[in-house]
Amino acid sequence: MSAVKDAAPPVGARAKLDASRRALYHDLLRQMLHVRYFEEKAGEAYAQGKIGGFCHLYIGQEAVAVGSLAALRPDDYVFAGYREHAHALVRGTTSRAVMAELFGKATGCSKGKGGSMHLFDAARNFLGGHAIVGSHIPLAAGAAFASKYRGTDQVSVCYFGEAAANIGAFHETLNMAALWRLPGIFICENNRYGMGTALERASVVYDISQRSCSYHMAAETVDGMDVLAMYEATRRAVERARAERLPTLLEARTYRYMGHSMADPIHGHYRTKEELEEQKQRDPIAGLRARLEEDGLLDDAQYAELEKGVHAEVEDAVAFAEQSPEPDPAELYTDVYKA
């Protein structure tokens, strides 16, 4: 059905994983399991009416946020769109603070005033949580501009979907980022569908990374279902941004398993069950698990242990969110202006 090709799978025998990096691999696996279980529980809570509004789940795309964020420093800046529970969690915002925000509680990371689409954690330089498609691409360039202005080597990373590559803000920003040599990393999470519109029906260019040609910007197309590929590609982009102050456009070929939001059916009229099942064969968690097991770096007991840990953390977060207080009614009028 889709004319879009995925990033080429490795040809021939792949290199064995580096055993000295076992801790890193386990951590990446644990974080992907964490995101997936968190999103499954968020989906359940939404179905129970405990989460309101729009709720966009990240299931299927875990490798993109987990792999790329692992390549950053804590003082780098991170901006995301509205499908951003994972980015906040991986950045280190607690499961409790994120789940409580989805529940609209006072203990949420935005005090219950932001919701699923507006998660913020300034202490971790997680700068949102933006729900107008493409609007945060210039914001991320602004943080990159600040790094250059102050002479620091912090980079600014922006996550957006492939549909945002058609909006003016994307093009205006990439031009200025390249023109001014801003240390920005623009990560396009190409999950093939802008809501229900397939990429081929919305863009004459299928390879989003090619958009970089117009701006003489470095670019890479990455298998967004391969967490290690995401990690390595982002490391290259970070190096380019820190050392040379040059921006990069990274296109991550990924896929979402759920509907656009919890309000939508899983496949709807715009894609088939068969396509969905086929894509699930690229599953990022199963993929990393298989590779680690094949290379003798993970056994069933260790995997079960990782799962057990994240399950406990997410279940604790749900209980915390349920028990947390609603915002004080007086909060309605606070935070409109800074005193």
Partner: peptide, 10 residues
């Protein structure tokens, strides 16, 4: 749009 947003981000 772009430079207004860059300002807000800064």
């Amino acid at each position: 749009l772009g430079f207004a947003g860059i300002g807000v981000g800064a």
